[in-house]
Design a protein around this nucleic acid. Sequence first.
DNA 1: AACAAAAATAAACAACTAGTTTATGTAACT
DNA 2: AGTTACATAAACTAGTTGTTTATTTTTGTT
Lengths: 75, 75
Amino acid sequence: MSNAQEQKLMKAFGKRISEVRKSRGVTQQQLAEHINMSVVAIAYIETGKRWARLGTLNKIAKSLKVTVANLFEGI
Amino acid sequence: MSNAQEQKLMKAFGKRISEVRKSRGVTQQQLAEHINMSVVAIAYIETGKRWARLGTLNKIAKSLKVTVANLFEGI
DNA sequence: AACAAAAATAAACAACTAGTTTATGTAACT
DNA sequence: AGTTACATAAACTAGTTGTTTATTTTTGTT
């Protein structure tokens, strides 16, 4: 699958995570370590190259102290 | 993986979809046909047994005329 | 400009899972 | 009793997430 619309969504979503993360003054490395995940995975998600499982979404949201719904805001 | 917290999230999410769907007066069958997906998959998602890919989330949201963020509201 | 830190990207891989089909069971309603 | 809607099970497949390693590019600092 993975059509154009979906790609766009993923990019927007990744950008949102990236922004929230930066607003918290956290590096990808730090986030990765905090949720016990590889930096590469974070980078892939933030650049919209890969989607994340619910568990991952949840961990990221929790780590950045936002709700999952909030991560989807404006998407 | 798939811990308890994640299970809870998935259940809540499924319940939300179920509610929105019913509020639209749509059956699982109708939703399934509309987004070209099996009824079983819909049932699994609504009962929190399976998570959905972004493409699926998007299709469901679109079909039910809500935003993806809205589906996560209160979750 | 030079350097260091942070991030992006690639490729190959393993493990997991979303979604399918088929079939059966249950609950509510007429 | 029959129908409709939904839940659940099992087995299977295709596709995806997330990993590691390594290289390149971007960004920020001195």
